[in-house]
Design a protein around this nucleic acid. Structure first.
Lengths: 189, 189
DNA sequence: CTACAAGATGAAGCATCATTCACGTTATGG
DNA sequence: CCATAACGTGAATGATGCTTCATCTTGTAG
């Protein structure tokens, strides 16, 4: 199931360089950066990008998937802390807050959050990660409701809805205010 | 202060056609439609677009400003109805709901709402319209607070924050749910 | 009715990009 | 150390899009 031939040493090194560079460039300039620019940042020729990824879309998707995994890791760590006694509601708001800050500085993750509903989601790599996020957050939500901090009719879909509409281009004060306004609506009762 | 020479008859007609076509095209395909496509839709040559607008950005801004005026009109009508006895809070939520639906179907207005904080706002035409919206909504907010339906610390900036983060690409059910979640956070007490 | 300024035209210039490919380079198994 | 498949290269290709300008057309003042 794994690769038949284990990738030559230099090829593996270049692949890593490309991923790093692509992540940096996309994070900074958004998915519309040119392949030339990514190649330059990685210190390779454009052709090399195409040796590793059939086309630009695939490269972008790979980067987005990586960013998205970070998000899933965060969600699962929240769940873990909750299991160790941390209040579920606090973990949820912490998660929301962190994602919001990340989105504000990282256009790749923004694309990722957005991609949940878009065509990127078709990619198999994405689907698995989405499941992880959904499961972790779902558990967190149920616990928060059981503990009485979160309104009873709140669902994972609602949480995704919040993620879609996070304010990305607003100053920190505005972002904090947005979260505060939202949270009063999510509190139980 | 007005134009020195009053625009030839055919020129005025073409200008109107261009504005209409540009509005339609941008509404449907977003601001990235080509000038060629707009020209074709207007039934003129590309060169004519440039006779009326120095560059694409200016044309897009003109269209966005138009859409934005519709929004200002709506806000002022809300204020008027409020003066005739309609509950301020109902007018506010109605306004939000309408803007949301429009954004969902009209990418030009989406750009407009977004432009409030972006560089488009630099244009003089925008500034005036922004003042109209801000005044009307500010009045509405104050009344809603006096009538006790709206939380006391809510400001016009908060309302803009909501406009920035309206869910555009979500199905109607999701949009409605989003509004409902938000509103429970805005209710007084 | 005429002259001419205002307006319209659209091919051409110029820039940006994604993508390809014929050729040079190199890691690595034997 | 060699043979060779894997890999890397970057100029070239073709597509698309904004903008310009020399040229033609037409509204309109007188």
């Amino acid at each position: 199931m794994t690769s038949p031939r284990p990738l030559r040493a230099d090829a593996a090194r270049n692949r890593a360089r490309i991923m790093t560079a692509a992540h940096e460039q996309i994070t900074e300039h958004g998915p519309e950066v040119s392949m030339e620019q990514i190649a330059a940042a990685a210190g390779v020729a454009v052709g090399t990008l195409y040796k590793h990824f059939p086309n630009k879309s695939d490269l972008v998707t790979a980067v987005v998937a990586t960013s998205f995994e970070t998000l899933a890791d965060d969600a699962e760590e929240c769940l873990q802390r909750e299991n160790q006694g941390s209040p579920a509601m606090a973990e949820l708001t912490g998660f929301l807050s962190r994602v919001m800050d990340t989105v504000a500085h990282n256009r790749a993750v923004k694309a990722a959050a957005y991609a949940l509903g878009a065509d990127h989601a078709a990619h198999p790599a994405m689907q698995e990660v989405e499941t992880r996020v959904t499961q972790a957050l779902g558990q967190l939500i149920r616990t928060a409701q059981a503990q009485g901090g979160l309104r009873a009719d709140f669902t994972v879909d609602d949480l995704y809805l919040m993620l879609f509409t996070l304010p990305a281009d607003q100053p920190p004060t505005a972002r904090a205010r947005w979260l505060a306004l939202l949270l009063t609506g999510l509190t139980a009762r």
